[in-house]
């Protein structure tokens, strides 16, 4: 808005930061304090082996359930973002269909232990070897590498919240009907993120590093879709009858 004075603009950005951070904290699934109480407990060797010896379809189903749970929190996050619910229903669905898993990957850095290369999963911290039965070692490695590199940015909860909103409001998703509306929301979110990074005295490079994450996220999600297609080709009935309906809606 060209007529907004810089002062009002700053206040508006501060307000946006506040609202989006609050939405993030209300819907983040795990509070950092809760995770600390779990004392970063890792799976024992026999527990790791038990996951590894599960049939491929059982492990896929378990992961689909966990992803779906995490996505439900992202949907709640989206609903609380200023302006999201004012978009047409088609665009709300398009943005969540394309962006919800990306936000799950972004949020993963909150439950990731960089030192041990483990992620909180099914009650304890799991290394990549826990997911061996899925038969997607390359994708799992990439997801862990992504979480590690997100962690290395040491984003605050506020910064993570704004970046998640920025990802969700991507105006270049296919099938958007009111692209301009989404563009405006995304630009505003980006300004708020820039404003926050400056306020937090982060070095200039952080925003550029985050821009690179956008393409990394898209690649992770398209590879997830490819792996699911390959799995479905072998186990169509398992997906049809045992996978969470929301997961099938989003990725089917």
């Amino acid at each position: 808005d060209g007529e907004t004075s810089p002062t009002t603009s700053m206040a508006e950005l501060d307000h946006l930061v506040q609202v989006i951070s609050k939405s993030h904290l209300e819907t983040c699934q795990y509070l950092r304090e809760e995770l600390q109480q779990m004392s970063w407990q890792n799976f024992l060797q026999d527990e790791v082996e038990s996951y590894q010896s599960k049939p491929r379809e059982v492990m896929w189903q378990l992961c689909a359930v966990k992803i779906t749970e995490a996505i439900q929190y992202v949907v709640e996050f989206a609903k609380r973002i200023d302006g999201f619910m004012d978009l047409c229903q088609n665009d709300q669905i398009v943005l969540l269909k394309a962006g919800s898993l990306e936000v799950v990957f972004v949020r993963m850095c909150r439950v990731f232990d960089s030192q041990n290369n483990t992620v909180y999963f099914d009650g304890k911290f799991a290394g990549p070897e826990v997911f061996k039965a899925l038969g997607c070692d390359d994708l799992i490695t990439s997801v862990f590498d992504f979480a590690k590199s997100m962690c290395s940015l040491h984003l605050s909860e506020d910064e993570l919240a704004l970046f998640s909103a920025f990802i969700l409001l991507s105006a270049d998703r296919t099938w958007l009907q009111e692209k301009l509306q989404v563009e405006k929301l995304q630009q505003k979110t980006q300004l708020a993120l820039q404003h926050l990074l400056q306020k937090n005295q982060r070095e200039d490079g952080v925003l550029n590093k985050l821009r690179f994450k956008v393409s990394a996220l898209r690649s992770l999600c398209s590879r997830h879709t490819e792996k699911l297609s390959a799995f479905r080709a072998v186990y169509p009935d398992i997906v049809r009858t045992h996978f969470p309906p929301l997961y099938k809606e989003l990725f089917g």
Binding site: V75, Q89, N90, Q92, I93, L96, K97, W175, L246, E249
Partner: peptide, 17 residues
């Protein structure tokens, strides 16, 4: 799209808790 995403649509319709 709404027809193909009934659960997501329902989640969006539910009031925020």
């Amino acid at each position: 799209l709404k027809e193909k995403h009934k659960i997501l649509h329902q989640l969006l319709q539910n009031s925020t808790s």
